[in-house]
């Protein structure tokens, strides 16, 4: 047995994390037989450091840090093509989603995507709705690219496609409470 290859080198800590990810994603990584159909159909794989099949393989091998550190999970556009095509029924898109959330908790993230998400949700929390124009402006300032898409701003305003002020719902207090209670549950789901 000395020369045999250990296929599941994960320690207990990693195993627990993988189980948690699987549970939250509602899927099982052990179903994957590495056919690569997910990668073949992935429209964003060209920009990933590890294509979807390899990310799943990392989880199978217990390489959780490597998987959570990959830029792949932030490049994923959540288009669901992988999940709808997987011949083994692995919900890869849901796993990617779960891994993004896990990485976020650990402070590992793609700065631009995370900044966008943060700006988006702060809109929802404060106004109840997304304030597109404000969101883009804020995103561009936060990410240090103030002139990005500048050529589109004025034409959008002219066309009545960008309101200069946010639309605010009546239930804004309700929205704040929703965000607060979700924070209290934080880490449980």
């Amino acid at each position: 047995m000395e020369n045999s290859v250990l296929l599941s080198p994960a320690d207990n800590h990693q195993k627990a994390l993988i189980r948690k990810l699987e549970q939250e994603a509602g899927t099982s990584i052990s179903l994957c037989y590495q056919c690569g159909k997910c990668t073949a159909g992935c429209p964003a794989a060209f920009a990933m450091d590890f294509p979807p099949r390899q990310v799943i393989r990392m989880l199978q091998l217990g390489l959780t840090d490597m998987a959570l550190n990959s830029n792949s999970i932030w490049i994923c556009a959540s288009c669901e093509t992988c999940s709808s095509r997987c011949p083994r029924g692995v919900d890869i898109a849901s796993l990617m989603d779960t891994m993004r959330r896990e990485a976020l908790k650990r402070g590992k993230t793609d700065k631009k995507v995370a900044a966008f998400n943060k700006a988006f949700l702060s809109n929802v929390k404060n106004f109840g709705r997304t304030f597109e124009a404000g969101l883009l402006l804020r995103h561009n300032l936060v990410t240090g690219q103030p002139f990005k898409d500048m050529e589109l701003g004025l034409p959008m305003l002219k066309r009545g496609k960008a309101s200069p002020l946010p639309h605010m719902i009546k239930g804004r207090q309700e929205m704040k409470k929703i965000f607060e209670r979700v924070d209290q549950f934080g880490g449980e789901q």
Binding site: S78, D97, L104, V182, F185, G186, Q189
Partner: peptide, 8 residues
Amino acid sequence: SGHNTDKL
């Protein structure tokens, strides 16, 4: 942004 951040 919602499902990228928190499932609940």
